[in-house]
Design a protein around this nucleic acid. Structure first.
Length: 602
RNA sequence: GGGGUCGUAGUUCAGUUGGUUAGAACGCCAGCCUGUCACGUUGGAGGUCGCGGGUUCGAGCCCCGUCGGCCCCGCCA
């Protein structure tokens, strides 16, 4: 039934024939994207990764090919021998190959295909099939031009990254995937060992320690396109398995790291014709939190947070008064020209901020008359004062949140982005990078009343804060000062996405010991987990630092998508399953026995 | 762990106050058609309304539970 390929070779792809090729005898191969049957005349849209070419079968001059075409169905794989012919008055402006068509003299049916479980392309719409269906048949979904484009863009981005670092004298070094679990940070994926029953490897959350060891080994400049694994819940921009560009360099300070961030992203973004600035703006973490309520602010729009705390000092309104008493704050954003928000819209926005722990969302509408949810409790003149502080003019909407500092930042910061999306305030053609500097060294965890490493436990404190750091660790009464210690840690942010993060590391064992102590790790515990690394630090470790960039997040921006699955060939669902291969799956008991593992069922 | 939302034909969706035989478009199958490219046209097939239970004379619709997709909070050194 089916034809054999034999020695037949393609002469062109389905996307490259042009007017200049008219008259050539060609061989094309690809998938049947569409068939239009006119009886004695049949048209096929032949698709491959490069594009679509129209193939014509005419009963009069290619009877055999024409009758064979009767059997063709969507997604059949065929080879077409024929001649490139100019289209006369029927060119198709939608196709790159639309000036020509191929008149088939012979068709080979290389393979047939079942009717796909969903239509690969629905004309003129985004009515794609349900994602679970598409994920089950991911190999079919990947045939869609959009995903073809994204996956190829990703390949080009990775190639550009390699090109950049190779050109800068960095050495690509592969580090092991089977590591040792270090129960800090994210949950590990764990791999049992057959040879060492009862013992486990862990998959890398990042090659952090290993890349630092390459500095101790004297490689000076390291990079790797590294697969990382974190057993945490997923998000639209988070998968349990992802790829990062990991780099490290010796004798480095922060500015040197920033230059590599700027250089690498600058090189990569040329792929989409975007010229990022040679030097990115810098902003401290504290300033980002104050102005945007976020450590990854989207700078494509304004709407900065304004502090109303001083205007409300001494207020009688009990909720605000108690917030200020408890060192909280009251802040707002001003939405230009949106005083016409309905009660329903405002309620939706209130529901939105409540997700971040905000108690309520107060508002001022600068309509023909000024109205506000706070009018009764604060009075007209105070409302006018707040509006003035918020720089709200006639027609504007002011949205106010009061509460703990962390809650106000999180809720208003998120609201700022949400409102910008809803009101279409974001310039989709803009790319606004930013380097956020001086991250805090520690994060306070209320539950355990402990300080945890904000970045990771090998991050160097800022020289300026070294004294404070030492005091905080060695003087129990000054422990709270840990919250004020800043680290030589930084993030690269583009359009509100954290694309890279890094730090200058600790290279002196005394400071590393101090840091473990700050984190509540005893010497014994630290040795148990990182002993090999602490040993290494003692053999002449150069000052070093680096960063890791999220390959998927970078590609999301390059491809203009908000979903990480759009830039991964075989992603997992929000519940961390692969619907195509149905993983994770069970293993048979023989396999478990060999590993000395039993499954507890309850 | 929590919240929101969706689940009806292969696909995308509609389905009134709970009421006869659950509809449309695309796709699919068969025929006709010499210039289509969202071809047209004639005819046809295709349904466990996610699953389980309940209320009712009667459930796609109401109630309870459950499973799955997506999004969010927590989490993500």
């Amino acid at each position: 039934m089916l034809d054999v390929l034999g020695n037949l070779e393609r002469t062109h792809s389905c996307g490259e024939l042009r007017e200049g090729d008219v008259g050539k005898k060609v061989v094309l191969m690809g998938w049947v994207a569409k068939k239009r049957d006119f009886g004695v005349l049949t048209f096929i849209d032949l698709r491959d990764r490069d594009g679509v070419t129209q193939v014509v079968m005419n009963e009069e001059d290619a009877g055999e090919a024409h009758s064979k075409a009767k059997n063709l169905r969507g997604e059949f794989v065929i080879a077409v021998k024929g001649e490139v012919v100019m289209r006369e008055g029927t060119h198709n402006a939608k196709l790159a190959t639309g000036d020509i068509e191929v008149h088939a003299s012979e068709i080979l049916i290389l393979n047939d295909a079942k009717v796909p479980p969903f239509q690969l392309e629905v004309a003129g719409s985004e009515n794609l099939a349900d994602e679970s269906t598409r994920l089950k048949y991911r190999y079919l979904d990947l045939r869609r031009p959009q995903l073809q484009h994204n996956i190829r863009m990703r390949a080009r981005a990775v190639a550009a990254i390699r090109e950049y670092f190779d050109g800068r004298g960095f050495i690509e070094i592969e580090t092991p995937i089977l590591l040792k679990s270090t129960p800090e940070g994210a949950r590990d994926f764990v791999v049992p060992s057959r040879i060492h029953t009862g013992k486990f490897f862990a998959l890398p959350q990042s090659p952090q320690i290993l890349k630092q060891l390459t500095m101790i080994s004297g490689f000076d400049k390291y990079y790797q396109i590294a697969r990382c694994f974190r057993d945490e819940d997923l998000r639209a921009d988070r998968q349990p398995e992802f790829t990062q560009l990991d780099m490290e360099m010796s004798f480095a300070n922060q500015e040197m790291a920033y230059r590599e961030i700027e250089g690498m992203f600058g090189h990569v973004f040329k792929l989409i014709g975007v010229e990022l600035p040679a030097q990115w703006p810098r902003m401290t973490y504290a300033e980002a939190m104050r102005r945007y309520g976020s450590d990854k602010p989207d700078l494509r729009f304004e709407m900065e947070l304004v502090d109303l705390s001083s205007e409300l000092t001494g207020t009688d309104f009990a909720p605000f008064a108690s917030v200020l008493e408890n060192k909280g704050e009251i802040k707002c954003i001003t939405v230009k020209g949106k005083a016409d928000h309905s009660r329903k819209q405002l309620e939706e926005l209130q529901e939105f901020v409540k997700r971040y722990g905000a108690g309520a969302l107060a508002w001022i509408k600068m309509g023909d008359e000024i109205t506000s949810s706070l009018l009764k409790v604060l009075g007209e003149s105070k409302i006018a004062e707040l509006a003035a502080a918020a720089e709200a003019e006639k027609g504007d909407l002011v949205l106010i949140v009061a509460g703990k500092r962390s809650v106000v930042a999180a809720s208003l910061g998120a609201l700022r982005v949400e409102v910008a999306k809803r009101e279409d305030l974001i310039d989709r053609t803009a790319y606004r990078p930013l380097i956020v500097t001086e991250f805090p060294m520690f994060e306070y965890d209320e539950e355990s009343d402990c300080y945890a490493a904000a970045h990771h436990p090998f991050t160097s404190p800022m020289d300026e804060d070294l004294e404070k750091f030492t005091t905080a660790v060695n003087d129990d009464t000054q422990h709270h000062l840990l919250g004020e210690v800043r680290a030589k840690a930084y993030d690269a942010v583009i359009n509100g996405y954290e694309c890279a993060g890094g730090s200058i590391r600790i290279h002196q064992k005394d400071i590393q010991a101090l840091n473990f102590k700050a984190l509540g790790l005893t010497v014994e515990k630290a040795r148990e987990r990182f002993g090999f690394f602490l040993d290494a630090l003692e053999y002449g470790t150069p000052p070093h630092g680096g960063f890791a960039a999220g390959v998927e997040r970078t590609c999301m921006i390059l491809c203009g998508t908000e979903n990480i699955r759009d830039v991964m060939a075989f992603p997992k669902t929000a519940s961390a399953q692969d619907l195509m291969m149905d993983s994770p799956g069970e293993v048979d008991t023989a396999q478990l026995d060999e590993l000395g593992i039993g499954i507890r069922t309850e």
